[in-house]
Write a protein that binds this DNA or RNA. Structure first.
Lengths: 351, 351
DNA sequence: ATGAAAGCGCTAACAG
DNA sequence: CTGTTAGCGCTTTCAT
């Protein structure tokens, strides 16, 4: 009895914050095998005696052993994770992409190492360098525009590089995305078809949000194609564009171009903000002014009225990216890019 | 000229995906110094000749050298990051906490390694193990309830453990949070004071969302204290609770308890969903039924009407957590916990 | 201001 | 099925 007590005390001491954590060598000593056997016991597939493994795993659990990925990665010269950069931590679209990617990679026991650029290319550069230092198996970046140095870092990286959510002007490696301009063009085409003529666009004015700028560009091109006035452009400032900024932009739109019949917003969040501004002014949507958004966020499916929008298939982007990475690592990629087809969803906020 | 070309070709070859990436030893060879000097050149504070450093950094840039954190961390037995678990990647409150934490840690050049539990304790356990394997400097978890094994892993971890967003029943190490129950009690008190009596609660029915359950508990307690009926409880299912689920819950509430005067929702998102259900049914808010939310999400400040809510000071939680970690690492923590005081914000959706 | 030697914890490669 | 040896790329420690 006394012996057991002291044994427990010993274990507690071993596991305390002040002692060095146990290593495989410690487990090896206790179980009377070599460190290599301990290493094998932790790999699912390796040939090892069933009882030996069980004893080792038991000893590990008793000791409070935690596997050291750092040492493992260094020795085997490969890691078990993929680095990912997204603009914002709080965006349902990017969250869906990361979710789809994560679930696909999980089938191969790979993790995601995530970083946020805050829509800033300088920050993206810093982040890419940080992430590459940790030796990921692949790196996924959101967008196709980067600082010169970031581009160089990616080009020189000894791993696959995948750009997403854009069709890069000059792809670095692989890419999976769609044309933001073409998606908005489709919405403009629809708006024109159902009879709107005086159409405005909110957002996309700041170059650093390349996807937003692209959407705005698509608007301008489409309006010109239809021979319509493409100058009803309202700035909304740098991303992320809040609901509040959407509301403010709508207030300016109503002042500058009071006869506007429809407005396309750079995202559903700004579109909802714009809608609330109309509600506060008792301006009927869509009868007096129609509203379109982008991204198919939940709010657009539940607001009153619901919002016409574009579903960019964010989750698909992530899943396809994950599958591409697995194919590349298996050395059998079919292709170096995947084009995604966004879908126009017409709801109550427009004809 | 020809020489320059071949030089460039050589560099390209060195940097290609098929060659082994350069190491400090390569830089050392090229610049004619020892690897140790190269190592010093990358540390900001180390004593090293200015020109030597410049030559080394230049050579590194030319070679496309990327510092290997894995090797560095292994040798120095410490990393430069803090592990963090949050329930969801797409939640403005947790995003703010991570933002505050990230910005505080950045002052000491520390990074965040983030993982998502998807509101699942089993998933949290897996995640905690994964994160600990990478040897973070500290680990921050959201919430104070964990699986037995997760708790053991945290207790045995040789690093500081900080639980956030809750006041844990049995703290593992440090904690920074608030009482979700007390925050809701304050809202109930306010509602009773301004005259509401038949008050309902939406959400918090599933045990796995401990913060939601706590809020519901606070509601029940407060109603009992006031001698009011605390049985108007509407389930909303497992987290994350969507706007849609809030709307569905409101529909059930109106059916089951049609004379309800006010409803408190587990979050602003479900509160907004509930609001839209009222709008679809032309039920006036707040004159016919008042609505309260939780979390002070942007939508509650811009919806029509704006939503009464509770600001949990998510960003503060992150900043205080970051500061505590820095203090612990400097070996001078003032305290082992910080209590945050949420703030009731009364807006248009209630008296 | 710089270098030499050793080793962090794990596993590749080979041997038995 | 298990063990031995060596070494991943860096930095600690001790010299000079």
């Amino acid at each position: 009895m006394r012996f057991e007590m002291s044994d427990i005390d010993h274990k507690r001491q071993l596991m305390s914050k002040h002692r060095k954590p146990p290593t495989m060598a410690d487990i090896a000593r206790i179980t009377g095998v070599s460190p290599m056997t301990v290493s094998r016991a932790f790999k699912a597939d390796s040939l090892i005696n069933k009882e030996t493994r069980e004893a080792i795993l038991q000893a590990a659990e008793d000791l409070g052993y935690v596997f050291d990925s750092t040492a493992s990665n260094l020795r085997s010269q490969k890691s078990d994770f993929v680095a990912v950069t997204i603009p914002s931590i709080n965006n349902a679209n990017f969250a869906d992409t990361v979710g789809g990617l994560s679930e696909t990679l999980a089938t191969r026991r790979m993790q995601i190492l995530l970083g946020y650029t805050n829509y800033d290319m300088q920050e993206e550069e810093r982040l890419i360098e940080q992430l590459l230092r940790r030796k990921p198996q692949a790196i996924v970046v959101t967008g196709g525009k980067h600082t010169d140095r970031a581009r160089r870092l990616l080009e020189n990286a000894p791993i696959p590089v995948i750009e997403t959510w854009d069709i890069p002007a000059k792809p670095i490696g692989y890419y999976i995305g769609f044309s933001n301009a073409a998606a908005v063009r489709e919405m403009v085409d629809h708006f024109v078809k159902v009879g709107y003529r005086r159409i405005a666009f909110i957002g996309g004015d700041v170059g650093r949000d390349t996807r937003g700028s692209d959407r705005r560009l698509g608007f301008v091109e489409a309006m010109k194609t239809h021979g319509l006035d493409s100058s009803r452009l309202i700035a909304a400032g740098p991303p992320p564009i809040s609901m509040r900024e959407g509301a403010n932009a709508m207030a300016r739109l109503l002042q500058e171009f009071p006869d506007t019949e429809a407005v396309i917003c750079v995202s559903d969040l700004s579109a909802f903000g714009a809608l609330t501004e109309c509600q506060r002014r008792h301006i009927a949507v869509p009868s007096r002014i129609a509203i379109g958004g982008f991204g198919d966020y939940e709010i657009g499916s539940i607001s009153v009225p619901t919002l016409t929008t574009i579903n960019a298939r964010s989750r698909d982007i992530g899943q396809r990216t994950g599958q591409l990475i697995l194919d590349i690592l298996d050395d059998r990629p079919d292709t170096d890019h995947v084009l995604i087809k966004p879908e126009l969803i017409v709801r109550e906020s427009s004809k």
